[in-house]
Design a protein around this nucleic acid. Sequence first.
DNA 1: TGATGTGAACTCCTTCACAGCG
DNA 2: CGCTGTGAAGGAGTTCACATCA
Lengths: 261, 261
Amino acid sequence: MTAQPEGVEPRVDQAAVPVDVPAARERARAIPEATVARLAVYLRVLLGRGDDRVATLSSEELAHAAGVNSAKLRKDLSYLGSYGTRGVGYDVDILIGEIERTLGLTRKHSVAVVGIGNLGHALAGYGGFASRGFPVTALFDVDEDLIGIRIAGIEVRHIDQIPDACAALDVTIGVIATPGDGAQDVCDLLVKAGVRCILNFAPVVLQVPEHVEVRKVDLAVELQILSFHVARRELAEEPLTGSSIGTEEPLTELPPVVVAP
Amino acid sequence: MTAQPEGVEPRVDQAAVPVDVPAARERARAIPEATVARLAVYLRVLLGRGDDRVATLSSEELAHAAGVNSAKLRKDLSYLGSYGTRGVGYDVDILIGEIERTLGLTRKHSVAVVGIGNLGHALAGYGGFASRGFPVTALFDVDEDLIGIRIAGIEVRHIDQIPDACAALDVTIGVIATPGDGAQDVCDLLVKAGVRCILNFAPVVLQVPEHVEVRKVDLAVELQILSFHVARRELAEEPLTGSSIGTEEPLTELPPVVVAP
DNA sequence: TGATGTGAACTCCTTCACAGCG
DNA sequence: CGCTGTGAAGGAGTTCACATCA
């Protein structure tokens, strides 16, 4: 490991982020959205393997573990620069460092969750956030019964306090887990508080200024997409009964075909 | 694939929704993934508007509400067929029906949630599933302390019972909310039980036979993508001081930057 | 007239295939 | 030789702009 000749690329520790700014800017700008999403996946795989003392991984291995093909993986990694060794593969530690730097994970983050219902409560207590460098530091709701209680040590406050509290805690990411109505208001408060990244679980399309980034997770939509595939598959499997052409299918409902495996 | 001569013309009268099966099959196969995801969004908007007795909507209005541009919306809807009226717009009820049929929502669905931790518990109690036609009918875990308790009236069973219970309840969609390790085992059990659609919240890439559809929701990845955008934006905003090392920036305060392209 | 529906151009992403290097 | 890195080809999705029709 650390078989790195030409000592231009310094070791990456989270105190200093070297590299000249214009180049980094250019590179960051150039990375496709689709690649960014996958970088996060590669990082998780690498962190898993890092424990195993695996010093190096080929594109084939890493790609398989991440569920993509190796050409795509190599192209993705090429956006970061050349951190592989031909004939060998990628140094796990170096790659981890590069991906973390690219994803901005060397920066401190701080997450606020708004809406402490079923989902918000689960998110507030979800260990997966903190363990990946996204500690939840503030919780908000409107329900008087919830305000003041603590979840995982964090006190729930009224959403009126969003501007002050978020600024004070330097919240970088807001998570909206409220019902659909009210989500836009909460969003406006977060934006006012200077939060520029929002993860939205509410089933509405948020309107935000263009300098604010929103990602949406819509569980019902996910299920509906799956539902589409069930339906498509059933159509595809359905035997082509020649007589079905002329028959009057009452198709308010889909044909009831279910094939047991 | 089966070259079907355009023999039967689909009559469109407003009461019934006819359509011959091969044509429906052809169409379903042709709809792009990206469009399917958006259809679900359009549907939600339409259902919201349906209550308001709005009989008709233009592509412009619907597109705005769904957060896309109108050209995209029209192209998306064109995959369903021609259900708009030129000079007027789309009939809300007809469109709802068409989208529901296309997404397979006229079929009965039944959801099993596996892994009753923070997230699984929230999902089990989440009203948004049932209200959109995806009732949760089975819950599973391995923890003896959880087995037997009821959430929203559903009893938690041991995952050993997945094959039997899922078959008996005709589960169409499995939701995996377990920790990463164990997710693959659970997945295998679901597949064995005949479940062909899986929504995976566990941070692993599941291996499944090709007739099984998996969608993954990875919350940490979502946050990391947002993090990337924070970083990119800071790079873009940062004045070109060659040696700025960003960690100590007083980021409590928002620079008022709004870049006009 | 005014909105839909759609070929065509365009942009973005993926895949191929192989040169280049360790 | 083996594997990375990458131009080039291919495919998917988006946007444009306008013919078309209620």
